[in-house]
Design a protein around this nucleic acid. Sequence first.
DNA 1: TGTAATAATGTAACCGGTTACGCTAGCCCG
DNA 2: CGGGCTAGCGTAACCGGTTACATTATTACA
Lengths: 340, 340
Amino acid sequence: MTKRSHSITIRDVAQKAGVSVATVSRFINHNAPISDEIGIRLQSVMDELGYVPLEAARHLATHKTGLIGLLSFTVEYGFFGPLVAGLEEAMKENGYNLLIATYSPECKKDEIAPPVGPHNTDGVVVFSDTLSEAQLAEWYRMQFPVVLIYRTSPASLPIPCVNVENKKSAYKLVEHLIEAHDRRRIVFVRAPGCQEDAHWREMGYKAALKDHSIAFDPKLIVDGKYDRRLARETMKAFLVNHPPRFDAVFAGDDDLAVSVVSALQEAGLQVPCDVAVVGFDDQRFASLLVPSLTTIHAPTENVGRMAGQQMLKILHGQPVDQRVVLPTGLVIRQSCGCAI
Amino acid sequence: MTKRSHSITIRDVAQKAGVSVATVSRFINHNAPISDEIGIRLQSVMDELGYVPLEAARHLATHKTGLIGLLSFTVEYGFFGPLVAGLEEAMKENGYNLLIATYSPECKKDEIAPPVGPHNTDGVVVFSDTLSEAQLAEWYRMQFPVVLIYRTSPASLPIPCVNVENKKSAYKLVEHLIEAHDRRRIVFVRAPGCQEDAHWREMGYKAALKDHSIAFDPKLIVDGKYDRRLARETMKAFLVNHPPRFDAVFAGDDDLAVSVVSALQEAGLQVPCDVAVVGFDDQRFASLLVPSLTTIHAPTENVGRMAGQQMLKILHGQPVDQRVVLPTGLVIRQSCGCAI
DNA sequence: TGTAATAATGTAACCGGTTACGCTAGCCCG
DNA sequence: CGGGCTAGCGTAACCGGTTACATTATTACA
C-alpha cells in the first residue's frame, strides 16, 4: 500500500556515473577488475544516492537467497536461545541470515507446505521431528541442502545430522544414581517433542539398569508434558498412583526435572534424601536451583554452531560429516544426593 | 555450486496445462476469476510437477517479500524466546515469516549496513538501541515500516513503539523493599544493553527512594554485564569494595538477579535475611529458584505479539498506536524477604 | 614487429514471477 | 437489436539485478 518512492536502481547509479550497469554490478560484487578511477566515482555516486541493491532481484538472477531456514516446532523451549545463538553466529560470519519459522507436525495433515524451503532459502536446518520423512526425501531428491539436528537421518537418506550423546549420557546418569547412591527404583520421565532423543535416553536408562541387574519396570516410565503446570500435574498424579515405590527420578530434560522437584516437594518428599532427581541439558538455571540439579551438560550452542558449519560445507560443496555427535558431560551437583 | 536441476517454472505449468502463464499466476493468487475446469486442471498439473512459486521472482515483481525482520543485539538473553514466540505467532497468522538478525552497536562504526532492511524485508522490528537514530530517520524518511520495542521513538520521529511499564514497576519494587522489609541501602544493578529500560528503572528506583526520604547514593549503582560469569565477578568485586553497606539489591533483570544471588551466597551472605534481592522480567526460572525470586512480571510474549500487530497495521495501512505501554505486575515471592 | 593474452568496459539476454492491456463471447437491458 | 458490461483468458512488458559475449586498448612475448 505504501506507494514507495521508487527506489533507486542499479541503472540510476550507472547513468549518474556514466557507466554501464554491468560495471556497477561488477563493482558491487568485486568479481571483475574495475579501474580505480571508476571505482571511486561509483562509490561516491552510490553513497550520494544511498543505493542498496534489492535482494529479490539478486536472488532471482543468482538463484541464491543468502538465507538459511531454521524449522522448529517451538521457539519457546529453553534450548532455543543458545541453539539460535550458535547457528546465527556460524551463518552470519559467512554472510547468511537466519529465517526462523515454526512448523508443527499438525500442519502436515493440513497439507500446508513448510514455510521455509527451496523457494525462499538456500538451505534449512531441521529441528527434531519437525518434518516428515517424505518431505525430507523430496528435498534430498532435489539436492536441497538440509541439516538435521537432534535427529538422525532416516536410513535411506544420507542427510547430515548433528546430535548429542544421548544413550551414553543417560547411562552415566543412571549408573551414578545406582552406584553412588544405591537407588534401584528409578523413574524415567520421557521428554516430549524430541522423540528420538527421548528414545535413546530411555535406551541408556534401560542399559544401565540391565548392567546392574535391575529389572526394568514399565510402570516407572512417565510421559512428560511441555507445559510446566501440566508437567507438574502429571507428576503429582503419578505420585498418587505410585506412593513412593521409587527412590529416584531421571527427568528427560531440565525443564521436566524442575516440575518433578516441585511436585515431590509439594507432596512432602525431600530431594534428594527421599527421592533423587537428575535432569538433562544443563540449562542456565540448573546450577541455581536448590538443591542444584545434577544433570548432563548438553552443548546446545555448539549444536547450533556445528549445524551451521555443516550447512556451510554443503553450500560450499565441501564434504560433510554424515553424523556428528557432540560429547556431553555428567555434571554432578546436589539433587542426586551428592554433597556440594 | 550445486547445479540445481532447473526448477520448474510457471511457464512449465502453463504449457503442460495448455494455458497462459497469466492464468496460472491468477490461479495461484486468486486475484481474478478462473473457470472451474481450468482451475482443476491447473491444480493437478501443479501437484504432479510439484510446482512451488519462487519467492524471489514474486518479490521482484510485487515489491513485497513476506518477511519481517527482527533486529536484536543478542539472541541469547532470557527474554528472547518468549519475544520471538509472540512476534512469530502474530506474523505467521498473516503469512509473514521472521528474519532474525543480530546487529551489535559496534557494527555501526564499521559502517556495516543492517542485515535486514528495505532491501530484504517489508518491515523491521527493532529491539532496543540496536539501531542509530540516523538509521531510523533514514528509514522513516523512505516510509519503511518500523516498530520499536523496549525503546520509545525519538522525539522527531513518530515511529510506533511497544514498551513495558518500567519506572512505575521499579518504583513498586523498591517501595516494597522499603515499606515491607525496611531496607534502606538498596543497590541498583543496571541491566546492560537496553539503555532506555535501565534508565527508567533507575528513575523509578530514585523516585521511590526520594518518596521515602532516603538519600540517593551513586555508589550503590552498579553496571551489570551480559555474560553471567562476568556479571557474577562484577558483583563479587562490588562486594569486596562495599562490604555489606547495603541490605538489598534491585537487579535490573532476572538474569542479573541470579548472578547477584550467586555472588552473595558465595560470599557467605544469606538471601533474603542479610540481603534482599529482587529482579525484573519474571523469567521462567524466577519461581523455581530458592529462594524464589521476587520480581516484576513483564509480558514479554505480549510485547512480541503487540509489536507484530502494530507492524501488521502499518503494512495494511491502518492507523497505529504511536506508543503502547504494556502493564506489568509485582510478583512477590521469597527473595525479598516475604514468606511463601 | 606481429600476435596473443589480458584488462576494462558495454550490450543485451535472462532469471521467474506479476499485471496492464487487449480480445472474445455471453448476458442484460432499454 | 445494438451497446455496455463482465467473465475468462492470452500477449508481452516489466521488476532490478547478473552475466555471457563482444569490443577495444594495453601489455607481454617470441
